[in-house]
Every structure is written in structure tokens, then in C-alpha cells.
Computed example of a mutant assay.
Amino acid sequence: MRALHIITGLGIGGAERQLRALLRRLPLACDVVTLTNPGPVARQLAADGVRVTHLGMGGNRDVGALPRLVRLIRRGRYDVVHTHLYRACVYGRIAARLAGVRAVVATEHSLGAHRIEGRPLTPGTRALYLATERLGAATVAVSATVAGRLLAWGVPERRIHLVPNGIEPDRFRFDPAARDAARAALGVPRGAVVVGGMGRLVPGKRFDALVRAAARLPDDVWVVLAGEGPERAALRVLSARLGLAGRVVLAGGCPDVPGLLSALDVFVSPSTEETFGLAVLEALAAGLPVLHASAPVVEELPRSQAPGARRVGAGPAELADALTAELALGARRLPVPAAVARYGIDRSVDRLMNVYEGVCRR
């Protein structure tokens, strides 16, 4: 069996990192096409020995990319085409059917209640999604929350398959040497307390609320944000306006996520509309206390499975109060919770292979 994975971009994001984790374990030959942005994860995949092709798509309406994608799929003679993220799902499902591949699987990584991948869920966006969804054979939901949303949209239950995201827990184990190296690279003083967040720098992630909260905290508290996106400049301006320019580090598309997590003392996810919470899971695997506004990865489990994760309000004042209470307990590492073992990547791979085999049989 040969599979082609089509993804919108390969910057540092949850869907992109999840794709790499899957490809490191999937027991079949896989190639990858990125429609745009062959960023850090593209380089990591290439280093893993995965063939990555950049389609060079100019934008959402670059329909000239469609025939190029059709030709690529035909040449590869793939048994399965698997799409990830909205634009890749729309174009990829159409291209796969035109190329004669009917075993088309799409993973829905980022379907929120009001937004999809940061963009508002307009009637047109929803209609296009549903029209192209019918061209596929199966739609994978990364959480029960996403599965429920797909069902409410009218996607038939028989086509929805729950395959939670997974990680390789040992990769995120706390490493004191990595902590010192990462802090030095980020320019963080040795005695500083570091609060961190990770994800695309877009309004929906609400990292501005974390920066505003930091302005209410003592001067020895630093904020490190890992990720790229259109909000980067605005966050830099906001930090300067609040007098935090020296204490807010925009780390960019950090390729060493385990090292970054070792450098932190508290992890914060201020987004109110997460569909899984992969970064939360990775932070828990690193033994970090986690404050989150939304994280199905732990909210769908009993509280005892992730005692180090606490749901908090998303406003700056609420975040500041929660951080003050957390920091009063002192910088510490927590035992890795049971939730981490539930989301091992091998379980995700087994479930995904069952989906592949089912759609190929049909």
C-alpha cells in the first residue's frame, strides 16, 4: 500500500507535527505534498527520508494548482490519498477523484464551533467543505469534540472515524541540559520564571491575552511564544507598549519543541476553541503544569488522568490570577500523568491503518 499525504503547509503547527509523528510510525510507503510554505516540518520530514513536494500554490483561488496535483497523484499510483487542513482537503479530494483514487481520507484537525483554522465559518466555507467531503471515503476526527461537530454539520456517522492525535512521550521528557541550552539560545536569564505558549500566531490562539496577563506579573516572569503567523508583528508592538519588550520572546517556528518545553516552568494555552490540544499534551509529557482555556485532549478524560492541567478563564485578568496562584507553588516538574500514555502515537497509527484498510476494501 502506498499513500500520499496532502497538507496546506508545513510550518510549525499541531497538524504538521502530528503528520510527521504519524509518518515516523506508519507501516507503509508515504509521500507528502505541501500546497504552500515548505517550512521547518518539511525539512524535518526530508531528514526522516520522506519525499516532500512543494506544489507552489499561490492562494486559496489558485485553481491552476489543481491539474498539477492531479498529475502528481496519477504518476504516484497511490492506493490512498490522505488530506490535512481545509485548503488541502478541498483541493486534495477533488484532485484525487479526478486522478481515479477513490480511497480518500481527510483528517479534520481544526474544526471549531465558530472558526476553522482561524478563519470564520461562513456559510460559503461550510458549503464548500461539505460538498468536497462527499468526494472522500472517510473523515477522521482528532477528538470526540470534532466528531460531534462533524455529525452536527450533517456528515454521515458511518463516514466519521475517531483517531485521536498521538505523541511519542519519551521525546518530550524533561531534560535539564536541554533546558539550559534552550534558555541560553532564547536569551532568558538563568533565574527567570518562564511562561510559554505554542501555536500559530493568529487571533484565535489569543496569545495577546497572555502577553497582557504578563504585564500584571512580577518582573522576573518571562513569556516565550513559539510559532509563526500574521499576529507576530502585533504581538511585538503590544509587548513594547506594555513595557515587556525585554521579557516577551517570540521564538518563531521553533524546530526543537522538546527543548523549548524543557525551558519552560508553566505552559499556557489561552485559545478558547481548540479541537484537540496537541501542545497541551506535549507539555504534560514534559512534566509541566498547564493552564488552558480549552483542551479536549484532557477535557474528554476524567480529571484524575491529568491532574497537572487546569481549565482557566481566557481573559488577561483571569490568566494573570491563575498564573499568580500557579507560580506561588514554585517552579517544579510534575509526574507525567496517565493521560499521556492514553495518547501514544502507536495507538493512533493502529486506528488510522484500520481506516485505510476499510476504505481500500470498499
Rank of each mutant, 00 (worst) to 15 (best):
M1Y: 00
T8E: 03
G9R: 14
E16W: 13
L19D: 05
L22Y: 04
R25P: 07
R25F: 08
L28E: 14
P38R: 12
G39M: 03
A42K: 00
R43F: 04
R43C: 06
D48F: 04
V50G: 02
G56T: 06
N60T: 13
D62R: 09
I73G: 07
Y78W: 05
R87E: 08
A88G: 01
Y91V: 12
G92W: 03
R97M: 10
H109R: 10
H109C: 04
S110Q: 12
L121T: 07
R126L: 12
L130H: 09
L135R: 05
A147E: 02
A147Y: 05
G148L: 12
A152L: 11
W153L: 15
R159E: 10
R159K: 15
I160G: 06
L162A: 08
N165F: 09
P169D: 13
F174I: 04
F174K: 09
P176C: 01
A177L: 11
A177I: 07
V188L: 15
G191R: 15
G204W: 02
K205C: 02
R206C: 06
A209V: 08
R216Y: 10
W222G: 01
V223R: 02
V224D: 02
L225N: 01
G227K: 11
E228G: 15
A234W: 11
A234N: 13
R236M: 00
V237S: 14
R241N: 08
G253S: 15
C254Q: 14
P255R: 14
L260H: 12
S262L: 09
S262P: 10
L264T: 05
L264I: 06
D265S: 15
V268N: 00
S269Y: 00
S271R: 01
E274Y: 02
T275V: 10
T275C: 13
G277C: 07
A279N: 05
V280E: 00
A285S: 00
A286N: 11
H292V: 02
A293F: 04
P296Y: 01
P302L: 10
P307K: 00
G308N: 04
R311Q: 15
D321T: 15
L327P: 05
L327G: 05
A328K: 14
A341Y: 01
I345L: 13
E357K: 05
R362D: 13
R362W: 08
